[in-house]
């Protein structure tokens, strides 16, 4: 199977029918739910927080963040979601998710003032930043703008957890190096390593907080 990010940029790939397919596939929903809970666990939030969701898509993770169920630690949280796909956001709108939605390209930066967010999550999105759709952009430039913007928009002691699908070891290194260069304390965590369901989490801290997990 070819990886979607190798064929088309995400705003073209997630057209209306792809968005619906992505959102209604129960397998994808289950995996996404699982990864969001894992990301929340790694964030260790202590009170209802303001969270940035990068690549929020149709709001699958967001619905967990704004849930008042005990499975959402310290929730309900308030979230802001960025996504480059208008049709994904249209599905989120239909579902009347609680977060504020932005049509935005994280590779262009994060348009919030310094210290805005307690935390950030990103589920299955950061690998898209490794593509450059036009000759004016480079993957390194896009990753740099994203991580610099993310770093500034988090408050001191804040954390971010980005689950992503690196194409290879080199891409994994490129992503985590970009985060470190922006100022983050960074750790790569792999669940089920070496299996088909391996999942990579980049755990980022602002201001030298402790990394555990």
């Amino acid at each position: 199977m070819s990886r979607p990010e190798d064929t088309l940029p995400p705003d073209l790939f997630y057209n209306d029918s792809e968005s619906r397919k992505y959102t209604t596939s129960s397998r994808i929903q289950h995996i996404q739910t699982q990864m969001t809970h894992r990301a929340l666990e790694l964030l260790s939030l202590r009170h209802p927080s303001l969270i940035l969701d990068v690549g929020c898509g149709s709001g699958l993770s967001g619905e967990i963040l704004s849930s008042s169920a005990p499975t959402t630690p310290s929730g309900p949280h308030t979230w802001v979601g960025l996504d480059i796909s208008a049709s994904m956001l249209a599905v989120a709108l239909e579902k009347e998710v609680e977060g504020d939605l932005f049509l935005a390209d994280a590779g262009q930066g994060v348009p919030f003032r310094p210290g805005t967010f307690d935390a950030a999550i990103s589920i299955s999105a950061v690998q898209w930043l490794c593509n450059a759709e036009s000759s004016e952009e480079s993957p390194a430039g896009r990753l740099g703008r994203f991580f610099n913007g993310l770093y500034a928009s988090l408050r001191r002691g804040g954390r971010a957890v980005c689950q992503f699908y690196p194409k290879n070891e080199e891409q994994k290194r490129m992503v985590s190096n970009a985060a470190v260069r922006a100022g983050f304390g960074a750790g790569l965590l792999e669940d089920d390593p070496g299996t088909k369901s391996a999942k990579t989490y980049l755990v980022l801290t602002v201001g030298g907080g402790e990394l555990d997990g």
């Binding site: 480059i84 709108l93 504020d100 939605l101 932005f102 049509l103 935005a104 390209d105 262009q108």
Partner: peptide, 14 residues
């Protein structure tokens, strides 16, 4: 529009 802000910039403004 419909509560969603469009923050996509044309590449010359990035």
């Amino acid at each position: 529009k419909e509560g969603i802000a469009n923050f996509l910039l044309p590449s010359h403004l990035v």
